[in-house]
Design a protein around this nucleic acid. Structure first.
Length: 551
RNA sequence: UGGGGUGUAGCCAAGUGGUAAGGCAACGGGUUUUGAUCCCGUGAUUCGCAGGUUCGAGUCCUGCCACCCCAGCCA
């Protein structure tokens, strides 16, 4: 494909475009097209335009235009020009008139129903409309009347005169213009006739100098029509349409209409809900745009139907985040732990690296005291063999602090564990090197007195089914009811309350988190979990569970 | 049963007549005060199937099979 582009060389010039219809928000599938269009243009020192295909004023809205501009910029792309199909309405209209004059287009006042019947079926050729042989003068007059609003919506259309017997339905005298007495967000009341997609899109490509018109597979059948239009009007620019397959991701959906359903029916909080596969959702979730670009590059471009695993995207996200995120401690489900041989009022500041592999990012001081919180998951009363965190009578290292031993479990009246009584070994302080005792497990912790209690939101896949779009169950029925978990009072390391929007952290052993743009208040950030860390312990647990149930 | 497409490992994907790249996942090992990161290693006698051409076929030919798209005055 790239070789094609290189070989063809429209006079050495390469120009592409990303042509969204402003009727929804961009999603990760669009990102594939955005990246491809911009990257390939850049690769050949060409240009890429952002062009809004705004030919259907009924469905389109300027809210979407703004959102799309923002998303494309966020991805890191600068368009050579921002255009609208509506910029070309005048020229498109002139070209339509020219087609009529050449006897290649006619006004048809058959009803929509009649036109449908006349079009024939997939296996049966269509029949010609009685209006097909209207005189050029008559057509010109009628089209002008259409333009002037003399007819009601649906009264008639302008059609290209191609071939009603073509095995390709798109060539059976496709509609060029229809009447829509609707105000357009760009052109207002200027027009009451609007060009159809194929016509407007091809002409826009020709007029603005597109050389390679990249689009998705379902337009393959439209290519002969695209080429027909180009052949009729082409003089200077001969754009070529090239198709590639859309992106599909497991456990989510990519249909704009269905995503809109989720929003409209309140299954999610909006287009930018962190669980949405939209770019705005991913931005809010904390996905770096560079990760999305990298992902688009890695998945490749073909004409093959594909459904990519989430893990592939998450790998790219983790890779960027691992490199750039400072480390912090956070305890999501606190279990109190009292270190009995550590003096009551005592506290000390321990050194903790901001990044284990990047010393240039420095370190911070973390307060340590007699009472700390650890993760409930990091203690098991009766653990399986490979568990090397804390257990009764067992030892574990508190990261950047000391080795502790669990001496006693304190329970409440209902028998639930409320506190762990422990002792610490003063000779095992991190960095001291006095006692080089090796110990298998290391867990994170937060000093109880210094903990900042803040909200953390954990996200899981939005759908339970790997392919929510197909199968007998409707996509709404396969929604994951536990796709978001709000932890109201997580115990976070001191200082995290000063985190700002845009900050990302790795909470050690838990995952990558970012400051939410919607729920955060000054001094009171809410953290979104962008993605978990790779977790081989979870895998071991899962396997153990599976082998038990197999017996 | 018309037309247009697509079939290479669990998921992607190179390959264009000279003996199956790469990534993700999985699995094994090493380093590690994050069960993270990092590092090393392990997969296709075979490319939807069946024939054929050729010294040689994922690549060429023939036939078949499977799946996707098309009958908006949507894009």
């Amino acid at each position: 494909m790239t070789a094609d582009v290189a070989a063809l060389k429209n006079g050495g010039r390469v120009q592409t475009r990303f042509p969204p219809e402003p009727n929804g928000y961009l999603h990760i599938g669009h990102a594939k097209a955005v990246c491809l269009s911009f990257d390939i243009a850049a690769e050949f020192n060409g240009k890429c335009y952002l062009r809004f295909d705004d030919t259907n004023p009924e469905k389109e809205d300027s809210e979407f235009i703004e959102a799309i501009r923002k998303d494309v910029s966020w991805l890191g792309y600068d368009w050579a020009a921002l255009t609208y199909a509506s910029d070309y309405f005048q020229q498109i209209h002139e070209f339509a008139v020219q087609l009529i004059k050449q006897g290649k287009a006619y006004v048809d006042d058959s009803s929509a129903e009649q036109i449908r019947v006349h079009r024939g079926t997939l296996t049966r050729p269509g029949t010609e409309s009685p209006n097909r042989m209207r005189s050029i003068e008559n057509n010109l007059m009628l089209f002008e009347a259409m333009r002037k609003g003399k007819f009601d919506e649906g009264h008639c259309v302008l059609r290209a005169k191609i071939d009603m017997a073509s095995p390709n339905m798109n060539l059976r005298d496709p509609t060029l213009y229809r009447i829509r007495k609707v105000s357009h967000q760009k052109t207002g009341e200027q027009w009451c006739i609007y060009p159809m997609y194929d016509f407007a899109h091809t002409l826009s490509d020709v007029l603005e100098g597109t050389t390679h018109s990249l689009c998705s597979l379902e337009f393959e059948d439209h290519r002969p029509l695209y080429e027909w239009f180009v052949a009729q009007c082409s003089v200077t620019n001969q754009p070529q349409q090239i198709e590639f397959s859309r992106l599909n991701l497991m456990f989510t959906i990519m249909s704009k209409r269905r995503l809109k359903n989720l929003v409209d029916e309140g299954h999610v909080e909006g287009w930018d809900d962190p669980r949405m596969p939209t770019l705005s959702g991913m931005r809010r979730r904390g996905y770096p745009p560079s990760a999305i670009r990298d992902f688009s590059r890695r998945i490749g471009i073909t004409k093959k139907k594909n459904v990519i695993q989430m893990g592939s995207l998450e790998f790219c996200v983790r890779e960027k985040l691992n490199e750039n995120s400072q480390r912090r401690f956070a305890v999501l489900n606190p279990l109190k732990l009292i270190i009995e041989n550590y003096a009551e009022g005592e506290e000390e500041l321990l050194d903790a690296a901001n990044h284990p592999n990047r010393s240039e990012l420095g370190s911070r001081k973390v307060p340590f005291s007699r009472e700390i919180y650890i993760e409930q998951d990091d203690f098991m009363e009766d653990p399986p063999g490979k568990f090397y965190r804390l257990r009764p009578g067992g030892e574990v290292r508190l990261r950047y602090a000391y080795i502790i031993r669990c001496e006693e479990i304190i329970r409440d009246s209902s028998g639930d564990i409320v506190t762990l009584r422990c002792t610490y070994d003063p000779d095992t302080k991190s960095g001291d090197g006095i006692n080089q005792r090796k110990i298998k497990g290391t867990i994170h912790w937060v000093s109880a007195r210094h903990a900042e209690r803040l909200e953390v939101r954990l996200y899981d896949r939005l759908f339970l089914s790997p392919n929510p779009d197909q199968g007998d169950v409707s996509f709404v029925d396969s929604l994951n009811s536990r796709s978001v978990e709000v932890v109201k009072e997580a115990a976070l390391e001191q200082g995290l309350s000063e985190a700002n929007i845009g900050d990302t952290f790795q909470f050690e052993r838990l995952g990558y988190f970012c400051v939410d743009t919607v729920y955060s208040e000054p001094g009171q950030p809410v953290f979104n979990r962008t993605v978990t860390l790779r977790d081989s312990w979870a895998k071991i647990e899962k396997q153990a569970l599976a082998s038990v149930s197999n017996r």
